[in-house]
Amino acid sequence: MNKNKHSLIPNLKSIICIGLNYADHIAETSLATHDFPEIFMKTSNALASNHDTITIDDESLHYDYEGELVIIIGKSGKHITREHAKEHILGYTIGNDVSARNLQFRGSQWILGKSLD
């Protein structure tokens, strides 16, 4: 990957993700759901730009992919009300969330399997 050289977000601070938010995927994985969203992080090295090649270096890692809706937050804030949330959204795009499942579920935190180069 290109290490964000073409990124439209040059000062990317965080990639915050919500897991288990599609009923079909929850049923497919047989994972337990909770009353609170499954929140996990991805590191910026896992971000690729449009037309970048995602190289699979180790087939034994059991890679999987999911199409995702991506919301780009362009204005910081704290304790934002539902009525003002849209004021903080810069835009929307789509993403390809590539995961190494056997690393993802090795522990309770998903970051290892979700943040490969």
Rank of each mutant, 00 (worst) to 15 (best):
L12N: 02
L20P: 05
D58Q: 11
W110M: 09
S115Q: 11
N102D: 10
G95L: 11
L103G: 07
E59G: 00
I16W: 11
L116W: 02
I9K: 00
S99A: 06
I71Q: 02
L103H: 11
G74R: 01
L31R: 15
N4H: 05
S115W: 10
E38H: 13
S49F: 05
H79T: 03
D64F: 03
H62E: 11
V70Q: 07
L20T: 03
Y65I: 03
D117T: 06
G19Q: 06
L47N: 01
T93D: 10
D117K: 10
K5Q: 12
L69M: 15
I39L: 15
K114M: 08
S115Y: 12
D24M: 05
P37D: 09
D24I: 08
D57W: 07
G74A: 05
W110N: 01
G107V: 06
I18R: 03
E68S: 11
L31M: 12
T33S: 10
L47C: 11
T53C: 01
I26T: 11
G77P: 05
W110F: 15
D117A: 10
I9Y: 06
D57Q: 12
W110G: 01
I54C: 01
G74H: 02
I111C: 02
I18D: 00
G19A: 07
T53D: 12
V70E: 09
H88P: 08
Y22N: 12
E66M: 11
I71R: 08
L61Y: 09
R82W: 00
N21H: 02
E83Q: 14
F105Q: 00
L20E: 10
D52W: 07
A100G: 04
D58K: 14
E38K: 13
G95A: 08
D52T: 07
K3A: 13
A32N: 14
E87D: 15
N102S: 12
M1G: 11
K13G: 15
